[in-house]
Design a protein around this nucleic acid. Structure first.
Length: 470
RNA sequence: GGUCCCAUCGUCUAGUGGUUAGGACGCUGGCCUCUCACGCCGGAAACAGGGGUUCAACUCCCCUUGGGACUACCA
């Protein structure tokens, strides 16, 4: 099933929370890399931490991946379902003398670590059980026997060659006393077994890489290529957290962001293609390589994401937008099924909204049976001297043959000319009559969308309003 | 503390020894205009510091400084 020479990448999140912005970017890079080289992208859930993993998180991550359009060719695999194999591998290492049982208690180790740190020494495992050749017991964890000398080189696809002295590494635990493998062991076994060719993951794993390479070698596996993507940080250069705003990908969906905006934003965080800012998915797949991924950490900039979102809303077809708007309109209590009406509304509003939430908000007036006038707007424009003009519009609009943007504009302009004032003199009162606000799409657009009947209704109601007020 | 990584406008970045250091977001001046957006034109804004290497450094090397990651029987 694995084609020879094919690129295989994976995304391996731990289900301990929602899909984070940073995780999403890593996933995107791994996905793009696989797609660019016509390879496979595998999804694996790293749920060996029985305490912190939840099914809810798994589902949330899957949903977010789907929303972003990051489809996977294999999986999702669950690491916890693979422990038998992990244990077998542990056994193999023990049999070969490459791993050993350790009965030091977590408390003891913690104590030693603290002491070493206080004395300014390296807090690494002191090797108490390394040569005791202890038998397997229920309280024994398994440690990997790490070489104490030599160097391990990581040829990172993004960062270049990184060299580690093996003496810096200590004998890490590969199987807990509860019988479950630890992360560093399970990733190696799984990545090897799944024939992952390129491990693309977060920067925070670079220091794990040499010991993982040693593990690959001890197990007799082929060492994959590594590519470590830098972290995403908040505006104060600390790790991105809730303090910097929403960090969950799906929170952005709920805030009215389009997935392509998120993808486009994320990909440009660390990756570039000349001066180009806007990319279709096909372009990304065609252009993406790890060579053009930068090494330095990036700061998450919500303004730019917002700009991209506005761009994609503006560029989206209104048909598509109507679909996307369904949940948002629903939240606002809009029930119309009139597709045509909804499409026209999107035509009018889409260049004026930065998010779908904003779009919903600014389109609300279209659906009202009775427009609610903002008090400042009414005070300024629904005044006695305007009633006449408004009723002229209401009367004459009936006979406008060319009821289009163009036709309405011509009609309004000639009316203004006839009465001897500028268009804006009638435009603003009309706007308030039709929308209740002083800010809206163009009145010609609104009138077309609303249709003659509703327009006349709203104008007459505004006239009534003026009359009852004076 | 140790190990590792990083360093061009506020932010994302282009740059690969010789450029008026380019683009984008944001900010800002103007145009368009029925309001608001969109769009268009313009502006301010950067090579962290110090040593080398070189005829020539943003670009290569070293140091300093500053940031970040890891240092768990978490992933």
């Amino acid at each position: 099933m694995t084609e020879k020479g094919k690129v295989r990448t994976r995304f391996a999140p731990s289900p301990t929370g929602f899909l984070h912005i940073g995780g999403a970017r890593t996933a995107l890079f791994a996905w793009l890399y696989a797609r660019h080289y016509h390879g496979q992208f595998i999804l694996r859930i790293e749920d060996t931490d029985q305490q912190r993993s939840t099914e809810e998180s798994t589902n949330a991550i899957l949903d977010a991946m789907t929303w972003l359009g990051l489809d996977w060719d294999e999986g999702p695999f669950f690491q916890a379902q693979r422990v038998d194999m992990h244990r077998e591998m542990v056994k193999k290492l023990i049999d070969e003398g490459k791993a050993y049982y350790c009965v030091c208690t977590p408390e003891e180790l913690d104590e030693k670590r603290k002491r070493a740190l206080a004395e300014g020494k390296k807090p690494k495992y002191d090797g108490t059980c390394r040569d005791k050749n202890l038998p397997k017991t229920t309280k024994a964890a398994v440690r990997f026997r790490c070489p104490h000398s030599g160097v391990t080189k990581v040829n990172d696809l993004i960062k270049g060659i990184i060299t580690f002295n093996n003496e810096e590494l200590d004998d890490l635990i590969i199987e807990r006393r509860d019988g479950y493998p630890t992360y560093n062991f399970a990733v190696v076994v799984d990545d090897a077994e799944m024939e992952i060719t390129h491990v693309i993951r977060g920067d925070d794993h670079v220091n794990n890489t040499p010991r993982q390479i040693l593990l690959y070698e001890a197990l007799g596996f082929k060492v994959p290529q590594f590519g470590h993507v830098s972290m995403i940080m908040g505006s104060d250069k600390t790790r991105l957290s809730k303090r910097h705003g929403a960090t969950s990908v799906m929170a952005y969906k709920d805030m009215g962001y389009l997935p392509e905006a998120m993808v486009n934003y994320l990909v440009r965080l660390g990756w570039s293609y000349g001066d180009q800012e806007i990319f279709t998915l096909d372009e990304l797949i065609a252009f993406f390589t790890l060579e053009s991924v930068g090494k330095s950490a990036a700061i998450f900039n919500p303004e730019k994401l917002l700009w991209l979102n506005q761009y994609y809303i503006k560029e989206s077809s209104s048909q598509r937008l109507v679909q996307e708007m369904i949940p948002f309109w629903q939240q606002s209590g809009v029930t119309t099924e009139d597709q045509d009406f909804l499409i026209h509304i999107c035509d009018d509003v889409k260049s004026r909204a930065k998010t779908l939430v904003e779009l919903a908000e600014s389109s609300l007036f279209y659906f009202m049976d009775e427009v609610t006038y903002e008090s400042d707007a009414a005070d300024a424009f629904l005044k006695a001297d305007m009633a006449d003009h408004l009723s002229t519009v209401a009367e004459r609009i009936l006979s406008v043959q060319d009821y289009t943007k163009k036709g309405i504009e011509t009609f309004l302009r000639s009316l203004a000319e006839e009465k001897g004032f500028k268009l804006k003199v009638i435009a603003q009162p009309l706007r308030v009559a039709l929308t209740g606000k002083t800010v809206s799409p163009g009145i010609d657009e609104i009138m077309v969308t609303l249709g003659k009947e509703r327009v006349i209704q709203r104008i007459n109601r505004a006239i009534e309003y003026i009359n009852t007020r004076t």
